[in-house]
Amino acid sequence: MTAPTLTNKQTIVALVENKPGVLNRVVSLFRRRNFNIDSLTVGRTHQPHVSRLTIVVDMQQANVQLIAANLYKLVNVIDVRIISDDPHVSRDLALVKVRTDDVESRNQVTAICERYPARILDIGTQVAVVEIVAAEDTVEAMIDELRPIGIVEMVRTGVVAMGRGTRIQDTDYRPAVPVKSNGNGYHL
């Protein structure tokens, strides 16, 4: 499935040093420059010293270039790609707690989940927790269908994305001095 392109939504992927305060630097930059973040995810990579940010913004192409140029000004940012320019895959995960307190709603939820890359993680006589992992607009579509049944709680991870094929975004970065662990080995 090709990742959907939504109006003016642009996805930026940044590799950053896994050091204390780096996430703060990125977020501070967006606030200070008045760039609105649609979603931001951060996580580890296969490299212990490198973390990966996926940032979705809703703005014109020219401004996204400015964001990339600004991100490069942060010393701890290793590599920035505007991934939405190229073929890529992207995924958003949502957990949706929805009302299932009668037969009709239970059947509806089950039927909706069959039509989406979704599954029911937990179901009872009052509510069910539904998980969906899909491209962002697919997640949106399913949430729209669940909404009339009665959503009582929801959480989304935000989008993670990766270039297709041999578009590899990686780095051989190693810190000059090994960063000492502060207990959990994760510093951002």
Partner: peptide, 12 residues
């Protein structure tokens, strides 16, 4: 005293 090049992979 550190020798060699300063390696800042994102700073170019």
């Amino acid at each position: 005293y550190p020798q060699g090049e300063i390696r800042l992979p994102g700073y170019r």
